[in-house]
Design a protein around this nucleic acid. Structure first.
Length: 214
DNA sequence: ATCCCGAGGG
DNA sequence: CCCTCTGGAT
């Protein structure tokens, strides 16, 4: 897909979702980082319910490290994979204190070396908190990139590079919100609702589900 | 039953 | 590449 079409595609999605919001609203690097770690394979509702109390108790790496794994676990017991996440959050907080002066590093290699942090999570922090021109490719964005031709690729890395090459740098941040919302409610993995997709004109994926009572 | 805004380990 | 971790929503 050309850059012009990509801009039109993203523009259509932005009009359909004029007020994007999610746990990505954390701008502080540390709370953003922890919120994203907690989000993996969990519902956003669960994360949004648990994080306010957790961050009130421990807003910084030092405070989180002091809080400890057991107490972190008590705060996040209602979300999936909480045991390994409590372990990772405790370990990454200690690592930030001991190796980075209690500050989230503005550096991909250092971020990905933290426990529980992979390329996707590192990209969220790099883009949302530090303004780097990168995209965090989750399952939704990976699927949309391939279905639509917006950014085809066999690996998340390839899709990421295609998106960064086609979407204007100043729109990458909001593109996360729009693409994820679109992937969740319209361009779903199963039974995509193509008949109500605002970006269908730029999409090459054939509608496999007929519109209800149409 | 099946899926989720992943990451680590085998 | 495949498996596992895990509660909650649908």
């Amino acid at each position: 897909m050309s850059r012009a079409d990509a801009a039109a595609f993203i523009g259509a999605l932005s009009l359909a979702n004029p007020s994007p919001r999610s746990e990505l609203h954390y701008h502080d690097p540390f709370t953003l980082l922890v919120a994203v770690v907690l989000s993996a394979q969990a519902t956003d509702a669960g994360v949004n319910k648990a994080t306010p109390a957790l961050f009130a108790a421990a807003p910084t790496p030092a405070a989180m490290a002091a809080l400890g794994e057991a107490e972190i676990g008590r705060h996040i017991r209602t979300i999936g994979l909480w045991q390994s996440k409590a372990r990772h959050v405790a370990a990454l907080s200690r690592a930030l204190v001991e190796q980075h002066g209690g500050v989230v590093p503005h550096d991909r290699t250092a971020l990905e070396a933290l426990p529980g942090v992979g390329r996707k999570t590192a990209n969220v922090v790099l883009n949302v908190a530090f303004g780097e021109a990168t995209m965090a490719v989750d399952t939704h964005i990976f699927r949309i990139g391939n279905r639509t031709g917006l950014a085809p690729g066999k690996t998340p890395r390839a899709v990421e590079e295609g998106l960064v090459a086609r979407i204007p740098a100043d729109k990458l941040r909001d593109a996360h919100h729009w693409l994820i919302l679109h992937g969740r409610y319209v361009c779903k993995a199963r039974r995509p609702e193509c008949w109500r997709c605002v970006a269908a004109a730029w999409c090459r994926y054939p509608a496999k589900t007929p519109a209800p009572d149409a």
